[in-house]
Design a protein around this nucleic acid. Structure first.
Length: 300
DNA sequence: CGACACTCCTGATGGC
DNA sequence: TGCCATCAGGAGTGTC
């Protein structure tokens, strides 16, 4: 049995992969029982109320918006977010650790939401329109949709003085991009992460849109190719982390020009770039010392 | 409103 | 070998 890479924090490609894998298990099925072990998961709503609302609902469609997993039912919508370390397991081993929620289906699987750091969330909306409004208030365009254009990105960055890297992580600028794919896309587009958002040229915005699409699609391809079961929290095969160009590669040669990859902290996030391929703005601080690796890659 | 610090949480890591 | 401070990070909140 193949095992699954949980390696990186889930971003759009990982959530999309989960959606594709999970959908055939849950769509069209009715929820028989829900157990919420961790009240933080559905806060500020009470676990009992959330569990009661879900019980008896039939899942009509499993969708995704940004990094949110949308469970559309016959009467209401659940918005689930994996955050840092959340995973969904289908018919898990009984000793799978860190269970926070169990959803048992009629004539179907049991799904566990497991999450060691307990950052993951699940919010129930009896009114589906309220769920969509909740998302629309927090999320910018879907990066793989026609709405995400160079002009749209340019408009979102115009006048902003914060580093473009930080702005790409702002879900209102573009939905679904996280720390890994932001670094990779900036490298592909040859835009330095420290450049002020408002100083990114229209041409660079177009390149950035293309690059974001490229890295997200590559991530989806890698996830789809390597994630093939939901039974184990730990254990792993392959994954996009083997394909990073600069992310978590401080000190290693740039794949384009062999200059050592630079590491900095931008917006309180580890940030990797090639300071030759991606021209730093004037006054950019020097990279951090050494080629030492960043933090741990969490496995399960 | 924008920018930024802080907070949540816990496993992995590295220095001593 | 063991202890323990530090780090990682999505997104919400608070401050200026």
């Amino acid at each position: 049995m193949a095992t699954r890479e949980t390696g990186s924090v889930p971003e759009l490609p990982e959530v999309e992969t989960v959606r594709r894998q999970l959908a055939p298990h849950v769509e069209g099925r009715a929820i028989a029982a829900v157990t919420i072990d961790d009240p933080r998961w559905c806060a500020p709503d009470a676990p009992a109320a959330t569990a009661a609302a879900l019980r008896g609902r039939t899942v009509r469609a499993l969708e995704r918006r940004g990094k949110h997993l949308i469970w559309r039912t016959d009467a209401g919508t659940l918005l689930l977010h994996l955050r840092m370390t959340g995973v969904l397991l289908v018919d898990p081993e009984p000793d799978a650790p860190y269970r926070r929620v169990e959803i048992a289906f009629d004539d179907g699987p049991t799904v566990w939401f497991c999450d060691p750091r307990r950052f993951g969330t699940g919010r129930w909306f009896a009114d589906p329109g309220a769920a969509d409004a909740h998302l629309d208030a927090r999320l910018g365009p879907e990066p793989l949709s026609d709405a995400f254009t160079g002009d749209a990105l340019r408009a979102a960055l115009r006048g902003r003085r914060a580093p473009v890297k930080s702005l790409l992580l702002d879900q209102r600028v573009v939905a679904g991009v996280g720390n890994i794919y932001a670094d990779e896309a900036l490298f592909l587009a040859r835009v330095h992460p420290l450049r002020a958002g408002g100083a990114v040229t229209p041409a660079a915005c177009r390149a950035l849109v293309d690059a974001i699409r490229t890295v997200l699609l590559a991530g989806i391809d890698a996830g789809g190719a390597t994630i093939d079961d939901f039974r184990h929290v730990d254990g792993v095969t392959g994954g996009f982390q083997d394909d990073f160009l600069v992310h978590r590669r401080a000190g290693e040669p740039c794949p384009t020009c062999a200059t050592p990859v630079a590491r900095r902290v931008v917006g309180q996030r580890a940030t990797y770039s090639c300071d030759r391929c991606q021209t730093p703005p004037r006054g950019a601080p020097a990279p951090l010392e050494g080629g030492r690796r960043a933090g741990p890659i969490l496995r399960g």
